[in-house]
């Protein structure tokens, strides 16, 4: 069972306190979007072996959504950060680069 630190309340929360929300940094497509863009937004998800960005909610805690950067293979956690951002902050990217040189995730590296 994973432990992730909630960046809002600071609690080192374990998985039973958390609700997994799937891939982070999705860009919403609404009316006017092409079929391809909308379909990709609704259904297409990254499934990497390695670095991944995920949404989590501290549901049995402070109730806040946050993002986590972690390795799906080793379960290493590179960091957690606010959900109110469209891309991973520099500190998180640097933390990943230090451990996984040359990593890439969608448009981020």
């Amino acid at each position: 069972m994973l432990t992730l630190q909630c960046p809002y309340c600071g609690v080192q929360a374990e998985e039973t306190e958390l609700h997994a929300g799937g891939e982070a940094h999705l860009k919403r497509f609404g009316p006017g979007a092409s079929d391809e863009d909308f379909e990709a937004y609704l259904f297409m998800r990254e499934n990497p072996k390695g670095v991944h960005f995920e949404r989590w909610r501290h549901v049995n805690g402070c109730g806040k959504w946050f993002h986590a950067a972690r390795c799906t293979m080793t379960l290493e956690v590179f960091g957690t950060y606010s959900a109110q951002t469209s891309e991973p902050p520099q500190s998180i990217r640097a933390a990943i680069s230090a451990k996984r040189p040359g990593w890439q995730w969608k448009d981020f590296a």
């Binding site: 929300g21 919403r28 949404r55 909610r57 109730g63 806040k64 959504w65 959900a83 109110q84």
Partner: peptide, 13 residues
């Protein structure tokens, strides 16, 4: 309620 919070916190923050 969770649905509302999700959209408020993660899309229209």
């Amino acid at each position: 309620h969770a649905h509302m919070e999700e959209w408020l916190q993660t899309e229209w923050w």
